[in-house]
């Protein structure tokens, strides 16, 4: 299995991308499968690290949570932009000690934090396991680090570590 398909996830996403771009026909399924196989074999020359997915089922849960949060913070940020220079809106930096070390999990966390309007990933030091984010509307620092740690990091650690 590993010799034929060194990177099954990569091959599957390449095939999915090919079918999305060209339409689903048996011919394209075959051609896409061949291209995905060859490409994932070429990729193995670069020896990328292989993400381990431990719990598939939690991914849907995580995506649901993130979807709702992005919707909510879109509304919140739109309100702040429309409100102009509101003195009640205090932005600032928040540091969060992370327990997650897995690079794929961290990459996902970066995508989540960046895609949520109102929070921006600023700095991460792997030596201290500390993440620095900037928050547009800090109500309390505690609730922000609680949110990142309990809502996202715990789930990501379940999936990837």
């Amino acid at each position: 299995m590993t010799r034929v398909l060194p990177y099954p996830l990569l091959a599957a996403s390449l095939l999915a991308m090919w079918l999305l771009l060209n339409g689903f026909t048996p011919g394209h399924l075959l051609l896409g499968a061949v291209i995905a196989l060859v490409a994932s074999h070429m990729m193995s020359a670069l020896q990328p690290s292989k993400p381990r997915l431990r719990r598939w089922t939690r991914i849907a849960h995580l995506m649901g949570i993130v979807f709702v949060d992005i919707l909510r913070s879109n509304i919140a940020v739109a309100r702040i932009v429309l409100g102009g220079r509101n003195p009640q809106v205090v932005s600032g930096f928040v540091a969060i000690p992370l327990e997650m070390r897995d690079p794929t999990g961290l990459a996902f966390l970066a995508c989540i934090i960046t895609s949520t309007p109102g929070t921006a990933w600023v700095e991460y030091r792997s030596a201290d396991d500390l993440l620095l984010i900037h928050v547009l509307d800090v109500v309390s620092e505690e609730s922000w680090s609680d949110l990142i740690k309990n809502r996202y990091e715990a789930l990501l650690m379940e999936i990837f570590e």
Binding site: N74, A78, V81, T116, G118, A120, L136
Partner: peptide, 28 residues
């Protein structure tokens, strides 16, 4: 929403605040 993000880019007053507003355009 993309327009709002662009307006925010002009109206907000510091770099770190402005960085948040284009996210409206890249998400919803």
């Amino acid at each position: 929403l993309t327009l709002l993000g662009a307006i925010g880019l002009v109206r907000l007053d510091s770099f770190y605040k402005r960085v948040h507003s284009p996210t409206l355009g890249t998400t919803w």
